[in-house]
């Protein structure tokens, strides 16, 4: 599976395959933010609240999570909106979010994914309700309703605490690790302080802190990958501290050598699909997005040759993904902080 064909008709070794550009795309992914408008359900505002101010706007990191925004939101509400005595009676663990349309927002989904999932779900509603743009990739605040009581616990699945959010996050990282290598040795091999550090990186939205640890787990793209077999001198191009790589096999960190790329496909209003996504095809050529989509969703992404109108689009982190993007490359450069390539599919109008 990992042997590369020597004849590659497409997928020239692109400029994107250098580690510097890998870092660039990782940083772009990391720095992405989404606008949120958070409004307390007016029926639940405690007595003597300052009505009219119960709306809070925030530009939230895509890689962050709603429970991590709670302290900031609470501070604002306590300072500006709630009557002091009434505010103290409120229990934060009973707070929960809903979208304007009444969709429950999950504590354990990255905020960027919640945003993108909202956009694709809007793409199947009557056009009059939303923007008129072709792909509907508007950048307007996602309107969230904050409820202060009676959380639908059984549907939220997790408690809103930062701790359970961390556990869910680590679970996702481990699942991604297992998908890539068939075991979770890289994750379990991390020292406790590294495991904590990777989550601190999310909490503090610190790119360097996060990637200092994540680079021990997430594979990278390397210039060596188009050579077959890679000359041993290329080992140094990984530029990784030898201490983390006792075996130091040249391809140990190569995104194109994983068993499978952690990919989830999100459709409007669900479902979420997940399957084995090999980095290369049987002929050794890279597995591209267009191949992946036309295999999994042929009715929305008809296999080539196809001359009909474009039916659907795929986006990640709010941007359309080029059809010839390679799945392994997406896994190394554009996965979310949880390690997953989360592809959101919307309908073209």
């Amino acid at each position: 599976m990992s042997a590369y064909g020597t004849t590659r008709h497409h997928g020239q070794p692109s400029a994107n395959s250098t580690p510097a550009s890998t870092t660039l795309f990782r940083r772009l992914t990391w720095e992405g933010t989404v606008p949120l408008e958070i409004r307390v359900d007016s029926k639940e505002l405690p007595a003597n609240s300052d009505r009219g101010l119960e709306c809070y706007y925030i530009q939230a990191p895509r890689v962050s999570y709603l429970p991590l925004l709670m302290p900031e939101i609470r501070r604002f509400l306590m300072d500006v909106v709630f009557d002091e005595a009434a505010g103290k009676m409120l229990k934060e663990e009973e707070w929960w979010f809903e979208s304007e349309e009444g969709t429950l927002l999950k504590w354990h989904w990255p905020i960027g994914l919640i945003y993108d999932n909202h956009i694709i779900s809007a793409s199947i509603r009557p056009p009059s309700q939303t923007s008129t743009s072709h792909y509907n990739l508007q950048v307007t605040p996602l309107k969230l309703i904050l409820h202060l009581a009676s959380p639908p616990t059984e549907k939220l699945l997790l408690s809103p605490s930062a701790e359970s959010c961390k556990q869910a996050f680590m679970g996702q990282l481990k699942e991604a690790d297992f998908i890539r290598w068939g075991n979770t040795k890289r994750m379990t091999g991390l020292r406790k302080q590294d495991q904590d550090g990777i989550w601190e990186g999310i909490k503090e939205h610190n790119f360097d802190d996060y990637w200092r640890v994540a680079s021990k787990v997430v594979p990278t793209t390397a210039p060596a990958r188009s050579n077959s077999p890679p000359p041993s001198t290329n080992t140094s191009m990984h530029a990784r501290p030898p201490s983390t790589d006792p075996q130091s096999a040249p391809d140990r960190d190569n995104a194109y050598n994983v068993r499978s790329v952690p990919v989830r496909l999100y459709l409007p209003d669900g479902p979420v699909m997940q399957d084995v996504v090999s980095p290369t095809l049987e002929d050794g050529s890279p597995h591209t997005l267009v191949h992946y989509l036309s295999t999994h969703l042929p009715l929305l992404f008809p296999p080539v040759p196809y001359s009909g109108p474009e039916l659907a689009y795929a986006m990640m982190h709010g941007v359309l993904v080029p059809p010839d993007a390679e799945m392994a490359w997406l896994g190394a450069c554009m996965a979310g902080a949880d390690g997953w390539v989360s592809l959101c599919v919307g309908i073209v109008r």
Partner: peptide, 22 residues
Amino acid sequence: LPWTPDVSESATEALQALDTYK
């Protein structure tokens, strides 16, 4: 389906496809 009559044929086709996947 919550669509007005001027919705393009391709969008209708896409919605039907979605139904299949759902």
